[in-house]
Design a protein around this nucleic acid. Structure first.
Lengths: 246, 246
DNA sequence: GCCTTAAGGTCTGGTATCGAACCTTATCGG
DNA sequence: CCGATAAGGTTCGATACCAGACCTTAAGGC
């Protein structure tokens, strides 16, 4: 009995470890760079577009303008942006997607990536379910269809990856739940990194297209169960692909 | 058409807002106090128990020892713990659960709480599903049953609330997914605050007990679908109760 | 009864970040 | 053509936080 008691105590320590999670990832500056670079890589600010003004960005990211400016400077040095002064100026995205790819190595530990896949299998189907449950506004329906259209007609793998991430983010945004949107964003960022590091076949993309269409259909039809089921399959397929190739 | 285009653009701005989320909640010190206070309130460090040594705590929370010590000092001032020096010393929890309750007002905005309920409805059933899917070690089974036992036999509402939170955390911990555990922890913290602010009836608790037992049974039987379904009902019931009383 | 050890307590220098004011540049409207 | 305005650029003091070394207290073991 002592053994099992000890085991329970050990597991309870794990509980403590869970609640006492580390707060504050790294330096604000680094997180800032990462966040902006991610936004650009995900195509949220496409090539040629202008970032919001510094003061606004700083406020949205909860960071002082000085810190934000350092981050922007780093991105400028990295060749991701150019900056123009004066009215109508700003930081303009200069993004050249690396189509050949596959030369980048993963920086996060492998377990963290596997964890993201597991978590994704819960939150994204959940998001699809939630989206199908609520009644959507006209603009939300419009966004959903536009996202589907974009990911369907995307030419080139890098562009497709961007459109795919935005498609999934769009579904999450339909829920209007900040926590859920945040979770999906996190997961998509990690996923985007992983997908950039492996070769993706055309037939995988075709398969995704069909699943995407089915998900949108189910959401618009209000069939929450089906939306979740299809999204689960979709996540499982991507996860299987990634686990196999990493 | 211009209208719908504008709508899509607006929705895309929302995407940007989602990715550019604020990093670094507040000051490290405040978050530290909150995290420790939460751990104590959730009963992870019960009355009379000793917190881990400062150096260890600081490392686990990713914070310098100075900052952690300030946080501990604040909790000491608040009467939540006492500190003894020397070997075998440490910070001892002095927690007096406020059984009468209901005098505390909610600090977080209402929408944030509703969001937590919605998010919970996704992650906790997901956790139950995941737990039922994997094969559990002996100590994990032991923890699960011990948690169920504790929440079943809890006398008094405050004690029950603690045991309930730990029960749900235990299920999440079975998944061994840090992201999932983190999500559930977050949700449980908010839930705990809410439940502390409303009167809970005995019949609600009885109903919970039955659901808890059914969830554990389904997890141990490996019936993932059932585990998820029951957990969904459980979350829905709690959510309905809370939405009605807030 | 000493010595080791495991804790908390204290001090110090360094740095990241904040914030807020102010300057400079460029565009737009009259 | 000239002011208003919307951007980026600069500077500076205040402060939160960190990393580490060191001191003090109390228990346990030989």
């Amino acid at each position: 009995m002592a053994e099992t008691d000890d085991a329970v105590v050990d597991a309870q320590d794990d509980l403590a470890a869970a609640v006492l999670r580390p707060l504050r990832a790294h330096h604000a500056f680094e997180s800032c760079v990462e966040m902006l670079a991610t936004s650009i890589r995900l195509g949220i600010y496409p090539d040629g577009s202008t970032l919001p003004p510094e003061r606004e960005l700083a406020e949205r990211m909860g960071v002082s303008r000085s810190t934000l400016r350092e981050a922007i400077g780093a991105l400028r040095d990295a060749g991701l942006l150019t900056t123009r002064r004066g009215r109508g100026g700003g930081s303009v995205v200069e993004f050249h997607p690396v189509e050949p790819g596959a030369s980048t190595t993963l920086e996060r530990p492998r377990e963290e990536l596997l964890d993201a896949l597991e978590f994704r299998r819960i939150v994204e189907p959940g998001a699809a379910h939630a989206a199908a449950t609520r009644t959507l506004s006209a603009s939300q329906i419009e966004l959903l269809q536009a996202s589907l259209e974009r990911v369907s007609s995307a030419a080139g793998k890098a562009v497709h990856r961007q459109a795919d991430a935005q498609f999934h983010l769009a579904i999450a945004s339909l829920s209007e739940s900040p926590l859920l949107i945040d979770a999906v964003t996190n997961v998509q960022v990690r996923l985007h990194e992983m997908l950039g590091a492996i070769p993706v076949l055309d037939r995988n993309i075709d398969h995704s297209r069909q699943q995407h269409a089915a998900i949108v259909e189910a959401i618009l039809a209000g069939d929450a169960t089906k939306a979740r089921r299809v999204m689960e399959s979709h996540c499982d397929d991507t996860a299987a692909l990634l686990r196999g190739l990493m």
